[in-house]
């Protein structure tokens, strides 16, 4: 559930738009920043706040790939495998990530530390192959560099 401070933030952001519904994506982002994911209760809370049925909020959450309706591991590793990354060896990067994290693409490791996802182009084609860990981009990778980056994470 959203805390007081974040509820106020959403109210403030709502003023940027002529209709309350437009604050939905910003509100979902605030919720996800707070908890790392968006629970059913939070979706209902946001729906009540903006005057939207739960079904609408759920529909939006599931439409956009970046909204998580389930908790993720401590680190969210996203590996781009689209064309420009594929041309520069993203296959090997993905295999290395899956190996180091003990989690296949689309899964969370048994210890809850890693969630690995294969993703579409992240707009870093000039630095291919690349991965993102949370908001941070890591570019011009080799399997060895990826391993080093991952092993350094606490």
């Amino acid at each position: 559930m959203l805390n007081e401070e974040n509820l106020k933030k959403i109210e403030e952001i709502g003023k940027r738009y002529p209709e309350a519904k437009a604050a939905l994506l910003p509100a979902l982002w605030i919720a996800q920043e707070q908890d790392g994911w968006i629970s059913e209760e939070t979706m209902k809370q946001i729906g009540d706040l903006l005057g939207l049925p739960y079904g609408h909020v759920l529909g939006v959450v599931t439409f956009y790939t970046m909204f998580n309706s389930k908790p993720l591991g401590t680190y969210h590793i996203e590996v781009c495998t689209n064309a420009s990354c594929q041309l520069r060896g993203s296959d090997k990067i993905l295999r290395k990530v899956e190996h180091v994290c003990s989690a296949g693409a689309g899964h969370t490791s048994p210890d809850g530390k890693w969630t690995v996802n294969e993703v579409e182009c992240m707009g870093a084609c000039g630095g291919a192959p690349m991965i993102a860990i949370g908001e941070e981009y890591y570019e011009n990778l080799t399997p060895d560099k990826v391993e080093e980056i991952l092993r350094k994470l606490p």
Partner: peptide, 28 residues
């Protein structure tokens, strides 16, 4: 006024009419 609006992972939202639906709080 200038406001930034953050998308959430959907290529289709680059298509202009879908982008407007996304700003309005809809699916793209």
């Amino acid at each position: 006024e200038i406001y930034l609006h953050k998308g959430a992972g959907a290529y289709i939202c680059g298509e202009e009419s879908s982008l407007m639906n996304s700003i309005e709080g809809e699916r793209g």
